[in-house]
């Protein structure tokens, strides 16, 4: 067992445990902080897969921008006053059973799928995740979608302002 595999298992365990903590935390601010830990673990996985550009973008966009936005909204709302009551235990049990059924449905399908039998994901080798290669493809083959996303951002910005402003 070399160091890459050890890192893989540590990051996977940390990601799953923090994801569970996101769901079970009562305080929404704790949920946000645990979700940031999940994003750091997923960025670690990207670095292990040598997808360095996506690792940095994941940190900047998700852990940096989106989670700060969530924190601002939580702090604007003063969560101590709201959401005093929880769902009943019965409804929670039904939700957990539904999620577990989803998990159990997929496991045998994945185990017997012929397309992924004995396939490996290259960890350290390969430079397709580096910013040079991705930038070349992004600004040649994917130029039109890239420009359209700027329009999408503009419309999202206008929509957020229009929805959020007072009457």
């Amino acid at each position: 067992m070399n160091i890459t595999q050890i890192l893989f298992w540590i990051l996977s365990g940390a990601a799953v445990i923090s994801a569970i903590m996101v769901v079970v935390s009562r305080n929404p601010i704790h949920s946000i902080l645990w979700l940031i830990v999940v994003f750091f673990c997923i960025s670690g996985h990207y670095i292990l897969l040598n997808a360095q550009f996506l690792a940095i973008v994941n940190l900047i966009v998700y852990a940096g921008a989106i989670m700060v936005l969530f924190l601002f909204v939580i702090m604007l709302m003063n969560p101590n006053k709201t959401n005093a009551q929880q769902k009943s235990l019965w409804k929670k049990l039904v939700g957990v059973i539904a999620g577990g059924c989803f998990l159990l449905t997929w496991i045998p399908l994945i185990k017997q799928a012929p397309e992924i039998h004995n396939k490996v994901a290259l960890l350290k080798d390969g430079n397709i995740g580096l910013i040079g290669n991705l930038g070349k493809v992004l600004f040649s083959d994917y130029l039109v979608p890239f420009e359209i996303t700027s329009v999408l951002f503009l419309s999202a910005m206008v929509g957020a302002v229009v929805i959020g402003k007072k009457e």
Binding site: A19, K87, G100
Partner: peptide, 20 residues
């Protein structure tokens, strides 16, 4: 790993009441 994270997300959507 992705399946586990996705299932935890589904369980969270089904069990939590806070919209955020």
């Amino acid at each position: 790993l992705s399946l586990a994270l996705f299932s935890i997300g589904i369980v969270g959507v089904l069990t939590r009441r806070n919209a955020i």
